[in-house]
Amino acid sequence: MANIITDETIEYVGILAKLELSEEEKEQAKKDMANMLDYIDRLNELDTEGVEPLSHVFPVNNVFREDIITNEDDRENILLNAPEQKNGSFQVPKTVE
């Protein structure tokens, strides 16, 4: 196995992804990710020198909206699925100490 995923990497990626893995899941994730990266690394066999990365598959450009207000107050709907709400707002744990 060429790729080795450390505890620190799993910890760090967990912070980025906002996932908290159990010890068991972490061990599994280390293995899975290393396997996957080994597999992915076969792309290195391909010579991509000078190839333009293709993010949008078709050359469609300039899709715009005009600057016209068409949305009305839809607060009731927007808050419909909120796990917790207060005063017409989404309620979250305190964000500052």
Binding site: A17, L19, E52, L54
Partner: peptide, 27 residues
């Protein structure tokens, strides 16, 4: 997949993985 996706985009890996994949897609 979220873990893998976060990793390949993370600092220092973007070019090696994501850009490489977009170039492969072009090919």
């Amino acid at each position: 997949r979220i873990m893998l996706g976060s990793f390949v985009l993370s600092s220092g890996y973007y070019d090696a993985y994501y850009i490489k994949a977009l170039k492969t897609k072009a090919l």
